[in-house]
Simulated assay, not measured.
Amino acid sequence: MALLEIRNMTHFFGGLRAVYDFNLRLEGGELMGLIGPNGAGKTTVFNLVCGFYRPTEGEILFEGKETAGLRPHAVTAMGIARTFQNIRLWNTLPVYDNLCISQHFRLGYGLKDALLRTRRFTAREKNVHKTAEELLELMGLRHYAQELPGNLPYGLQRRLEIARALATRPKLLLLDEPAAGMNPGEIDQLIDLIRWIREQFDLTVWLIEHHMRVVMSVCERVQVLDFGETIADGSPEEIKQNRRVIQAYLGSEELSHA
């Protein structure tokens, strides 16, 4: 059974077709890229998988279970986490609290437990703080635990957003343009981080990215969208040599330097 299987997924916004007949079979442990020009439908695909939209047609199966129609928090609880193209952190709360609050959906206690400080409350809170402490250490954020996210350099904000997603203990991690806004040095660190995360957390990673150096360096398979339709699916080398991809998105000069 595939970890994620998408069958004939199509989505319209009113009369505008954003995604057409999208198909994907993603196995556990894969590191896959989704690329295409602006407006190709990439983020819409992620939004459909994560429950922000419901597909007009088609199926989305995660570990064999249908997710279409579930709310985003329910999809997260199944084991799918994501980051966003525009960083969405809780900027009025410290780094540490960002990591704690992201785990709220699996606390499993109610108001009575919180008020009476029951054993259930104590045990669940202990697990939340343990996870936050571990992620601070693993993701190199220990020294910034009490900083507000907006005070961090851009690369560390991205790292925090990924850490917050990891706090939900996902099986599938979706990264939406993680290199956006980064300088070359930060991009090099990101490439190493994505590889390390996949191995350290035993994850499947699916990423949208415009930086071809990131895509060609970390992805084992790449799918290409253009106007909502898949025009290619293959290894990075196959994608680099695909003439339809070059014409639709990469451009011969950019492709030659990827």
Results as ranks from 00 to 15, higher is better:
L3K: 02
L4C: 03
L4V: 02
M9N: 09
T10A: 09
F12P: 01
F12N: 08
F12E: 08
F13V: 08
G14E: 08
G15C: 10
G15E: 15
L16A: 12
R17V: 11
R17S: 12
Y20L: 05
Y20H: 12
L26D: 04
G29V: 06
E30F: 05
G33M: 03
G33H: 02
L34D: 04
P37G: 07
N38G: 12
N38P: 10
G39P: 04
G41H: 00
K42D: 01
V45F: 02
F46T: 00
N47V: 08
T56R: 09
G58W: 02
E59T: 05
G69T: 11
L70M: 15
R71A: 15
R71S: 14
P72F: 02
A74F: 04
T76C: 15
T76W: 00
G79A: 10
A81L: 00
R82L: 01
R82T: 01
R82S: 02
F84A: 08
T92A: 15
T92P: 07
T92L: 14
P94H: 06
V95W: 08
D97C: 07
D97P: 04
C100V: 15
C100A: 15
S102N: 09
Q103V: 13
H104D: 09
L107P: 06
L107M: 14
D113N: 14
A114C: 13
L116D: 00
L116Q: 11
R120P: 01
K126C: 11
K130D: 15
A132L: 09
L135A: 02
L138V: 12
M139K: 08
A145R: 15
A145V: 03
Q146D: 15
P149H: 00
P153L: 08
P153A: 05
P153Q: 04
Y154K: 11
Q157A: 09
L166K: 05
L166R: 03
A167F: 06
P170V: 01
K171R: 15
L172P: 00
L172G: 01
D176S: 12
E177L: 12
P178T: 07
A180E: 09
A180G: 13
G181S: 05
G181I: 09
N183T: 13
P184I: 07
G185L: 11
G185S: 10
E186Q: 13
I187K: 13
I187C: 12
D188F: 11
I191L: 06
I191G: 01
D192G: 14
L193F: 11
I194Y: 06
W196D: 09
W196P: 00
F201H: 12
L203C: 03
L207G: 03
H211T: 15
R213N: 15
V214F: 02
C219Q: 04
E220K: 13
V222F: 00
V222G: 01
Q223M: 13
L225E: 01
F227Y: 13
I231N: 04
A232Q: 09
A232F: 09
D233C: 14
G234K: 12
E237I: 06
I239N: 01
K240C: 09
Q241T: 04
Q241S: 11
N242E: 08
R243H: 08
I246W: 06
L250N: 01
S252H: 13
S256L: 15
H257L: 14
